[in-house]
């Protein structure tokens, strides 16, 4: 039983770490901000998630396990939202995507006047 747990947790840790490395390479190598954010979000969700799962299998006490689950829930909740906010802000500021002609990307940004006014 203990061996199986160890194997499972090592598997999770290794795959999680590998995903983090892949995310890091992607962040360095991909051509523009939007694709880079996509690569970085892999580290955020699945990479960190698998590492935390691996730690969870090694957690001795329920208290530690619950804390790890809460950390993961928090990351799962905030990580994508942060990525979303980053990309939206970049898009609104006029950061261009690679591989699409510049003319094709103009005239579709949400400017302040286009946004719905709230009462």
């Amino acid at each position: 039983m203990e061996l199986a747990l160890d194997v499972a947790s090592w598997f999770c840790l290794t795959v999680g770490a590998a995903l983090c490395v892949i995310g890091a390479i992607g962040t360095l190598r991909l051509p523009d901000l939007y694709t880079r954010t996509h690569a970085a979000s892999i580290t955020d969700t699945l990479g960190a998630g698998l590492v935390l799962l691996g730690c969870l299998l090694q957690a001795g006490t329920p208290l530690v396990a619950v804390k790890l689950v809460m950390i993961y829930a928090f990351m799962l909740y905030t990580g994508p939202a942060a990525g979303h906010a980053l990309v939206k802000a970049a898009y609104a500021r006029g950061v261009l995507a690679a591989g699409i002609p510049e003319e094709a990307q103009e005239g579709e940004r949400p400017s302040e006047s286009d946004l719905p006014e709230e009462p």
């Binding site: 909740y77 905030t78 939202a81 979303h84 906010a85 939206k88 802000a89 609104a92 500021r93 949400p110 400017s111 302040e112 946004l115 719905p116 006014e117 709230e118």
Partner: peptide, 27 residues
């Protein structure tokens, strides 16, 4: 209330993005 942006250059305001607003209100 509709001029509260602290982002310069009239960039889109964060509160207009539903996801950011909902997640932050939860957090």
């Amino acid at each position: 209330a509709h001029r509260p942006t602290i982002t310069p250059e009239g960039a889109a305001r964060m509160r207009d993005f539903a996801i950011v607003r909902v997640v932050s209100m939860g957090v």
